[in-house]
Design a protein around this nucleic acid. Structure first.
Lengths: 124, 124
DNA sequence: ACTATATTTCTAGAATTATCGAAATAATAG
DNA sequence: CTATTATTTCGATAATTCTAGAAATATAGT
């Protein structure tokens, strides 16, 4: 991922309503959630929410598809992953010793193979 | 990490000059770099750069300490790590299957032991 | 065609951010 | 104390963002 889209994504997430929206949509993967339900869930006027959703959409962090009268939004986890990778690379820059601890600190959150514990390490 | 400081950090990084500054400072860990040198390296007026450094500092992403006439800035990698963990948790939310691929995609960036390749996986 | 529902676009005001010249502050040297 | 260097603060302007009321668009039901 290049710098410009990464900045767009960071800016999109650097706003409390939008961060809440993204969290909500992640929680509702993979079904997604209609615009109106998002607005209701977060107690924000629909047109205001529409503007925020447009920002997230422009940043590529969410996708939208019309279903009947509703427009259902979904979090784009692949894009989110790309943004995270971009940031980690900023940290690494050919010097693994710098951010190996970073990797270790976030890895326990998602044990890739193991299923014994799965404590989700939510507060690291 | 809580939401508010995370948003502050995201906003700080969501600006090209500041993202460049952070990258530059990571590259210069652990010695740090003086404000004037940062400004010169990125071809930005010193007072403008000072404002950007203040934003990064308020966000906790950099620290400053005076050394003689210079003020030397350093990247705060622990804080950066905390922000990354915060974001990953947004993705995981007790559902490891969602972002296990994320973890896998950023892990090869920092092979903790290996020194052979270090290809940094920069374009994921 | 008309009505109701779901969402977006238009428009505008308030607030915040980015930029930078000029002046102020801090540290060192002579 | 004066001069020099390094950096920040002040002040002002341009640009962007956030918010939301009002109007417009799209879909579905009667």
């Amino acid at each position: 991922m290049e710098t410009e889209p990464a900045i767009l994504a960071l800016a999109a997430l650097a706003q409390s309503t939008r961060l809440d929206v993204f969290r909500l949509l992640v929680k509702h993967e993979p079904e997604g959630l209609a615009a109106g339900e998002i607005a209701k869930a977060l107690a924000v006027p629909q047109n205001t929410m529409s503007a925020h959703l447009a920002v997230l959409s422009r940043a590529g962090l969410v996708s939208a598809r019309r279903i009947s009268r509703s427009i259902v939004y979904r979090a784009d986890l692949a894009r989110f992953q790309a943004v995270m990778s971009f940031l980690v690379n900023d940290c690494c820059q050919g010097r693994p010793e710098i951010c190996a601890p970073l990797i270790e600190s976030i890895t326990p959150c998602c044990p890739p193979k193991r299923k014994g514990k799965a404590h989700a390490g939510s507060h690291v």
